[in-house]
Simulated assay, not measured.
Amino acid sequence: MTNTTHHAEDRPTWPAIWKGWRRRCPNCGNGPLLRGYLQVRDACPVCREDFHHHRADDGPAYLTILIVGHLMAPLLLIVFTRFRPDPLILFTIFAVGCISLSLYLLPRLKGVIVAIQWSRYMHGFARAA
């Protein structure tokens, strides 16, 4: 029972989330977490923390859709009702906005999901006995 409380102190969640948002290793904060756009490295090149067992799966994509939808849908309604732009202009602006915001958020949210799993000792991130 004391061991579980000790784990939470070893890996504080908020600093790990911030490092994940920056796409950095949640352990050391220096090494890159991702190789390329979305592929998580097998291990940190700086501190050698293993990441091969992460289970981010569809979480980052789901969160990206959730955030982009909740930001852009009300904005679309406001712009449409206030300014009444031509439909093609409205579509073009919001299509570019949605795609840009999605491309920006997706790797950052993937880093956040992996960092949360690391900080909570989930999916194989548990300390070796």
Score class of each variant (00 low, 15 high):
I99S: 13
C47L: 04
R127W: 07
F83E: 08
A129V: 10
W21M: 08
T64D: 02
L101R: 02
R82I: 09
I67F: 08
V114D: 00
L33M: 07
G36W: 05
V46C: 02
H70F: 10
F80I: 13
V112Y: 00
D58Q: 09
P26F: 04
L106Q: 05
C44P: 00
L106M: 07
L75A: 15
L109G: 00
L88Q: 14
A73T: 13
R11Y: 02
T5L: 13
I113Y: 02
G31D: 01
D50A: 14
C98Y: 09
P87E: 01
T4I: 11
C98T: 14
K110G: 01
G124V: 07
L76R: 11
M72Y: 07
A73G: 10
R82M: 12
S100I: 08
C44H: 00
D86I: 09
A43M: 10
P85F: 05
P60Q: 03
P74N: 06
P107S: 05
P60W: 00
Q117W: 03
V46S: 02
G36Q: 05
V114S: 00
L63P: 00
A16P: 00
R84E: 14
P87F: 02
I17Y: 04
N30I: 13
N30P: 05
R35S: 15
G36F: 03
V46M: 03
F51V: 02
Y121M: 10
R48F: 12
V40I: 05
R108L: 04
H70K: 07
I99D: 10
F94R: 05
M72E: 11
N3T: 15
I65L: 15
L38M: 14
T2P: 05
L105I: 03
L34K: 07
I89D: 11
Y37W: 13
Q117K: 02
G20N: 00
R127A: 10
T4F: 09
E49H: 11
G36K: 07
S100H: 12
V114I: 10
V79H: 03
P107H: 04
R41T: 06
I89N: 12
W18F: 07
